[in-house]
Write a protein that binds this DNA or RNA. Structure first.
Lengths: 135, 135
DNA sequence: ATTGACGTTCCAGTCACTGGAGCCCTCATA
DNA sequence: TATGAGGGCTCCAGTGACTGGAACGTCAAT
């Protein structure tokens, strides 16, 4: 199967598939003319990575997960560990975004949004809040 | 004031401040020796950008917001518009992350997490779901 | 033989920094 | 006066995960 159909099959852009090949996530065979030839296992991997990526896993995790997937001697604990760590990161992001959302919503509510220049949003940005120390 | 103290004052890393100078967000005066000399207005801008960035605004938005901040003839509607758009993007991100979190939580719950290889997480990734079309 | 839709590689750009190399400047101390 | 520490400066490369484009090869059909 050529790259276009592999793209159609996996739902990934052609460019992305080539990129995944470049970084060694997949390694499809080549035809006599140099064209990539995607077999069942390649398509499977592509689908796998597409799913993992859509859940926000980094490429590095996808690589590990893929190795686990292909390793019959794996322990599900390893998979669960990676997934749990990722879930924790997702929750962290959600928390941060919720904080931003709260602050911003409040500011937006306070702002008249008319033709006058007075703006609590800008006022807030201009004000130096409590100094933060990134640890 | 030298760059180190500006960093201390604004809570931004020295490198970041130099970067903001490079891209023209700030433009502090220079001493006879070429050292940057941060005045009140520079420090103010730095604080402003730090605040905006901490709420997730892109540099491009910060630039616009900063211009609005310094423009006495601004209309608060413009500020509110930018902020509202950004808030909408934050909400989009939260929604996506929540979806990921739900799916992943479910999968993790199903996974035994022991020494055996059976793993619903990997099973799910290997399975091709409904084909998605990115518009 | 030519057209058009495929395929290939390689390079540059995205975003917002961050790290490092290699250099200069200043001040205090020996 | 030499030296060392601790600033400062610029420029280049790398991050993550692609994406766009140029320049070129291949293939089937006309």
């Amino acid at each position: 199967m050529n790259i276009k159909n592999a793209a159609l099959d996996s739902g990934l852009p052609v460019k992305t598939i080539r990129y995944y090949n470049d970084i060694g996530l997949i390694n499809p065979a080549r035809d006599h003319n140099g064209y990539r030839d995607f077999r069942e296992t390649d398509l499977h991997k592509l689908t796998f990575v597409a799913q993992a990526r859509s859940l926000g896993f980094m490429i590095g995790d996808c690589r590990t997960l893929l190795a686990l997937y292909e390793n019959d001697a794996r322990e599900s604990a390893d998979v669960k560990h990676i997934a749990s760590q990722h879930l924790a990161q997702i929750h962290e992001k959600i928390t941060k975004l919720n904080t931003m959302s709260d602050t911003l919503s409040h500011l937006i509510n306070e702002c008249a949004g008319d033709h006058r220049p007075d703006c609590p949003i800008l006022d807030n940005f201009g004000k130096r809040g409590s100094k933060k120390n990134g640890t």
